[in-house]
């Protein structure tokens, strides 16, 4: 079943066009990757879906309903959760409080919050000992785990992850990708934006290749992984933001 349908959208930052023409679909239960070099429009696509930007052309539908004019706080209430680039942990809140903030998209009981936190700590056991530490004191990898955990607290139907491997050491990156796969196996649909193409293609079902704000290719992950041309594009193509 198609959950999210992005149809020929254009997005701008002021007068600079970020996206020219993007169309994509995300089906229930999938991991879909958006790949491309820096500035190809991957993050802009996520920002447009989550309502931080409104498309200047085209439509976005979630379960058959237009969402492209809604505010971010309305979209996250529908279960589309955007974990932004650079982790964006609340620096002055503790790990527990950061997780609590993830439940801001709905009314919760105390017990529900506790269950949610427990579930996150099962996925990221490292966070357990940091639970009362302030966000700014965490390392990059810990912050990334917290950011994903915070996203999970929202009970996402679709989890959109923007560059979860950004600035992390390879060993941590592996853990992060493994966790994304686990989360998906628990039934969360994932839309993943990554520079790290190989890793993403290995966990994703399908992927879209973006270049200068356009989709230039879409295929199953396996096909893209086997294609040498994709590698070359990603390593040497023009990039602009």
């Amino acid at each position: 079943m198609t959950m999210l349908k992005v149809d020929h959208i254009e997005s701008r930052y002021g007068e600079v066009v970020g996206l020219h023409d993007i169309s994509l679909e995300v089906n229930e239960g999938e991991i879909v990757a958006l790949l491309g070099v820096n500035g190809a429009g991957k993050s802009t696509t996520l920002k447009t879906i989550s309502g931080l930007l409104h498309p200047t052309k085209g439509t976005i539908e979630y379960l058959g309903e237009r969402i492209d004019r809604l505010a971010p706080e309305a979209i996250v209430r529908k279960g589309i959760v955007h974990v932004p680039e650079g982790r964006r942990i609340f620096p002055g809140l503790t790990v527990r409080e950061n997780l609590l903030m993830g439940t801001s998209n709905r009314k919760t009981t105390r017990a529900e919050v506790e269950r949610g936190i427990e579930r996150v700590l099962e996925i990221f056991p490292d966070l357990k000992r940091l639970i009362n530490q302030l966000g700014w004191s965490l390392s990059g990898g810990q912050q990334q785990m917290l950011a994903i955990g915070r996203g999970l607290m929202a009970n996402p139907k679709i989890l959109m992850l923007d560059e979860p491997s950004l600035g992390l050491a390879p060993v941590i990156v592996k853990q992060v990708f493994q966790t994304i796969r686990e989360i998906n196996e628990q039934g969360v649909t994932v839309l993943l934006v990554e520079q790290n193409a190989s890793m993403s293609l290995r966990i994703a079902h399908r992927a879209y290749l973006l270049e200068t704000g356009r989709v230039v290719r879409s295929d199953t992950a396996a096909n893209l992984l086997a294609d040498d041309a994709v590698r070359t594009t990603l390593l040497t193509a023009h990039g602009r933001g």
């Binding site: 390879p170 290995r202 590698r231």
Partner: peptide, 12 residues
């Protein structure tokens, strides 16, 4: 590896 994240020995 840094750019593409190639990591052949990683078991998925």
């Amino acid at each position: 590896k840094a750019y593409l994240g190639d990591d052949a020995e990683y078991d998925y």
